[in-house]
């Protein structure tokens, strides 16, 4: 059973508003699939359909080869889910809520729970109304990660986490990946997905824009480079893979195509690099690039 998640021609509208029009992708066994798109693109809607929280209008949606609406219970025994905005009961403690989730999931691992609580530095005795956004998110993450599942679904899981905790989350996901679990990771942070995902599905306005392995999509990404050189920086303008070149004194700012990174660096070091900064492309850049053709 190589296909863990299988979505074909998925449609969903809310009243007149068409949220999904022909969504289509798969997650294979042991694969981490990054699911990215700007806010409102339909990531959460797709995930809610997969979880049987809302019902699709048309199309196929299967997990483990079973229909996500009709056989949701069978499916739910083997999945874990973290929403992007974990909301909790204010009068229960984090520890109590994690225990409840694990019990209702059915395959919770007590030791992993305690380990993760330490790892994420959560105070499990505190009532949830005293938690910050990041701490609430940790409760959801610990509950999902401490449960033994075959498919993990994360919907923008790191919103509100500080970078340190984000890194811990990524390490934990990597461990899952090594033990052969399948993961669907929705995000609008490209770097997070780049680090973890084998394949990426990019959507916008309820439709697939691009999908494929990261390498296949590499050509889409361009970083913004700021460069100061000893020699005349204007010479950089004609190097292959340099776009949108702008110059101020001997400091240049341009977009660099990753395919030609080597050429660009070679040329820069010939001029004598005094300062080099590279900012990875934002998702918006990526879409701009995509629509420019």
């Amino acid at each position: 059973m190589p296909e863990i998640v299988n979505i074909k021609d998925l449609q969903k509208s809310f009243g007149k508003f068409q949220a999904l029009s022909g969504m289509e992708f798969t997650v294979n066994a042991g694969e981490v699939v990054g699911f990215i798109g700007p806010n409102g693109a339909g990531k959460s809607t797709t995930i809610r359909i997969l979880l049987g929280i809302i019902k699709r209008d048309a199309g196929t949606a299967e997990i483990f080869g079973k229909d996500v609406w009709k056989d949701s219970l069978e499916i739910h025994k083997r999945i874990s889910y973290v929403p992007g905005d974990v909301t909790l009961w204010g009068n229960l403690t984090g520890g109590e809520i994690i225990d409840l989730f694990l019990k209702l999931h059915g395959r919770g691992d007590k030791q992993k729970r305690d380990y993760l609580i330490k790892r994420f530095e959560l105070d499990p005795k505190k009532k949830a109304k005293g938690y910050s956004k990041g701490n609430r998110q940790k409760v959801g993450l610990i509950a999902a990660l401490a449960a033994e599942s075959d498919l993990y679904i994360f919907d923008e899981p790191t919103s509100g986490l500080d970078p340190l905790m984000e890194a811990i989350f990524q390490e934990e996901v990597e461990k899952l990946k090594q033990s052969g679990k399948s993961i669907l990771l929705s995000s609008h942070i490209l770097s997070e997905v780049e680090r973890l995902a084998d394949r990426v599905v990019i959507i916008r306005q309820g439709e697939i824009v691009e999908s494929g392995s990261l390498d296949e999509l590499r050509h889409l990404t361009r970083s913004t480079v700021t460069l100061t050189t000893e020699g005349d920086v204007a010479e950089m303008a004609n190097v292959n893979g340099v776009y949108d070149f702008e110059q101020k004194h001997n400091q240049a700012t341009f977009s660099a195509d990753h395919k030609h990174l080597n050429d660009i660096l070679r040329e820069a070091s010939r001029l004598g690099v005094k300062k080099f900064e590279s900012v990875p492309p934002t998702l918006e850049d990526l879409f701009m690039r995509h629509y420019e053709g």
Binding site: L51, L73, I79, Y81, T87, G106, G140
Partner: peptide
């Protein structure tokens, strides 16, 4: 509506 149940709906609870 406060989304407090969303993580629970994804368990084997009907």
């Amino acid at each position: 509506s406060r989304s407090r149940l969303s993580q629970l709906y994804a368990t084997r609870v009907t």
